[in-house]
Design a protein around this nucleic acid. Structure first.
Lengths: 323, 323
DNA sequence: ATACTTTTTGCAACCGGTTGCCGAACCCGA
DNA sequence: TCGGGTTCGGCAACCGGTTGCAAAAAGTAT
């Protein structure tokens, strides 16, 4: 059916090994021979079979990218950047979605193991123990999750949260609420710890919540009940849902309550009010994570933690506290 | 390093072929032997190497899913449904993003060819000619695109567009605008044709536009200039951007202009005004497309067109024309 | 007990590449 | 012209499974 390396060998009158080398070790074959072989290959429409190559080299030239939820707009920029970076290195990325389910996540990793050289785990919901165990089977890079001794790319949400709290207190807010995310989320924990460590403010934590608009919508009642006038939401989706939920209860943003989100997704830049938010360098994270992963794929055991900066972007969803 | 079929064979005192058959052809091996082999395999932590299997069987048990833009919220439900359906059939899905670039799309298909058994092409921007050529290399199923003789899953946007136009004329609008999408888009063409075929309305077409909020934002000026009071946007993202762009020009929705989107994405259900939209059965499309693809993978040459219904959901972005 | 099925297992070739090893051809200087 | 060093290309084993074929084992009928 398909044209193989042997067809090319026959057609160009050389041995298969020469054809193979023409592709994967050019310096070992006479330039003239190589040109001829490549021409014939081109002519026959030959394309190397990556699966076969993987068998001997042990390299599939594929990477796995596992995210909790593709539908969350936080991920696509990261995914795109990772894909682009991988292509640069002649790798392909297989994206998979776990639906926020740790069990599905583990299964996925297991099945992916033989088909990829490494896995990018974005915002995993697994336990540390499980991650450490899985690590034996295949190289990992974690994004948005800290596990001792594993290569990791983090975004400094702690600092972001501090900036957010300072911004709110600067506007005169004295009672704040943090609408937290899913329980397994490192980001959520970071936010909480940073907020809790701030002095001279009264902070209440509401959660856990699903990291979606619906989560924010549902949290609106608690926010109202809490009496907080400044809110830091787990992410922009939650913030958007929250604004909506508050509006349904006659609470207007930013007039009555100020809301800050996280991620700086496009939707937040367009609705009304435009969201004040903590911008995350997701594209950079994707690129860097891929490079770290490739490094640890062939360097046996690379490790290291990269921390990326976050920034506070002030828009319309925060305002002075009413006195 | 990893445990192979031969390790299992040695450890359980049978030939490799027996081990192989214990997994892939159970009825050909004595139940007792099989139980023993499986136990040993389990014990050793053996997992079959899919790449190796692919080499002999010619089946990778992987599917490719190519979308124009993962960041477009239209796709995730489709992707998730496709993934879930594929898992049910013991297949994996590799998602890839083309960034709306036909060239990248073609490259991607080429490289994917050897690693997957079939490809799901969602809203492809390629020319018909290219698609037909690529078809020789690997089984396809198209979503949201019609090419003669190819298995296809469509959503009836034509009907949706007619419903939308009727809704608008019913509200008294006499001059309508259609904000179209990218030039290669089948959906866009369908919408235009359906709208153009409606009598007794004055329709102007504005485009092509990128299928994003920014596209809608940019189209606002043209809409204002066109004098239309009813607008059908290429999708909800465009609609949301458009609403925002109109607001910037002091044009309020639905007071001054009515806007209808397409897709029924979550963001449209939450902003203000909540979008009137044409809902697309994306999850169903994903499921069906996977099944059609798997069918045409082993049935050599299956074909057929599935058309799914769309519905008009009336919310707040449409209202009576001012007289 | 014999001949004939049917089930179970082993053998070995094969899928499509890669790679260590070895010999042939070539180059250079003396 | 000969020895020594390179460069180039062929040979064959191998990666980890699958599968057609046939031998061995077990079962059945006569």
């Amino acid at each position: 059916m398909a044209v193989t390396i042997r067809d090319v060998a026959r057609a160009s009158g050389v041995h298969v090994s020469t054809v193979s080398r023409s592709f994967s070790a050019p310096h070992l074959v006479n330039p003239e021979t190589r040109t001829r072989v490549l021409a014939v290959a081109e002519d026959l429409g030959y394309r190397p079979n990556r699966a076969a190559r993987a068998l001997t080299t042990g390299r599939t030239h594929n990477l796995g990218l596992i995210v909790a939820d593709i539908a969350n707009p936080f991920f696509p920029p990261l995914i795109k950047a990772a894909q682009a970076q991988a292509r640069l290195r002649d790798y392909h990325v297989f994206v998979a979605d776990t639906d926020e389910d740790p069990k599905a996540e583990e299964d996925l990793i297991q099945t992916l193991t033989k088909q990829v050289d490494g896995v990018l785990l974005c915002s995993p919901r697994l336990t540390n123990r499980t991650i450490e165990r899985l690590r034996e089977e295949i190289p990992f890079v974690l994004v948005n999750r800290r596990v001792k001794g594993m290569p990791t790319v983090l975004m400094d949400v702690g600092r972001g949260a501090r900036l957010a709290v300072e911004h709110l207190t600067g506007l005169g807010h004295r009672r704040l609420a943090v609408v937290t995310g899913p329980s397994g989320s490192w980001t959520s924990k970071e936010m909480q710890e940073a907020a809790a460590a701030m002095n001279e403010v009264d902070v209440v934590f509401l959660g856990p919540n699903p990291p979606t608009e619906l989560g924010g919508l549902a949290a609106a009642a608690d926010v109202v009940a809490s009496g907080a006038t400044g809110v830091l939401a787990y992410n922009d989706l939650v913030a958007i849902g929250l604004v909506e939920g508050l509006a349904e209860r006659g609470v207007e943003v930013p007039r009555d309550v100020s809301v800050i989100g996280v991620d700086d997704i496009v939707a937040g830049r367009l609705g009304r009010p435009k969201l004040t938010t903590i911008a995350m360098p997701t594209a950079a994270a994707g690129r860097i994570a891929v490079d770290m992963l490739l490094q640890s794929v062939d360097a046996e055991a690379a490790t290291g933690v990269t921390m990326l900066e976050t920034t506070l972007i002030v828009r319309e969803s925060t305002g002075e506290a009413r006195t």
